[in-house]
């Protein structure tokens, strides 16, 4: 009695294994359904909203929309952003706060998007760049505003 049950079980196991193996082997004759990508020879398609890094947008005149209000710095949960401000003199002779350096430490950023949400002038956005590896950690601390850039006129 025990022997019959045992043999039955073994045959059942072999049968269910064969069903599973048939499924596995069926993929050999359908190579189209194999989804391995040969990175970096094949470049992946990156979603347009992918959060890869924070960038400060500059237009063709090398102008940005950042007023230096530090709202992004305050919104950031982990101190990734540091806004250094300076005082510009307007043509009327008044002093006006402006952005001096936008320090962004990529190695600390968690891509949470809170800074972009907080910016009142939509000066920053998330970019889709994803290959960030460098040999020296210091290279990850970036200055986001271009050399010689200034604030776009009309942005308050």
């Amino acid at each position: 009695m025990f022997l019959i049950k045992y043999i039955k079980e073994v045959f059942g196991a072999v049968k269910s294994l064969a069903i599973g193996m048939r499924r596995t082997l069926s993929y050999f004759v359908r190579p189209k359904e194999i989804i391995t990508q040969q990175y970096p020879d094949e470049r992946p398609v990156i979603a347009e909203r992918f959060r890869g890094e924070v960038v400060l947008m500059h237009d063709e005149n090398n102008e940005h929309a950042c007023t230096g209000c530090t709202a992004c710095e305050l919104a950031c949960p982990n101190g990734t952003i540091k806004i250094v401000t300076k005082f510009d003199t307007t043509p009327e002779g008044k002093k006006k706060k402006a952005l001096d350096t936008f320090v962004y430490r990529l190695e600390m950023c968690t891509m949470c998007n809170l800074c972009v949400e907080a910016c009142p002038t939509s000066a920053i956005k998330m970019d889709t760049a994803y290959e960030h590896s460098v040999f020296d950690r210091n290279k990850l601390t970036k200055k986001l505003n271009n050399e010689g850039s200034k604030i776009r006129s009309g942005v308050e």
């Binding site: 909203r49 992918f50 968690t110």
Partner: peptide, 20 residues
């Protein structure tokens, strides 16, 4: 990834609704 921009650590829901 299409909607939230991230694949694992989303931060997509915010107090008051969703981010995008």
């Amino acid at each position: 990834e299409d909607t939230c921009g991230t694949r694992l650590t989303m931060n997509y829901m915010v107090p008051g609704g969703v981010l995008m």
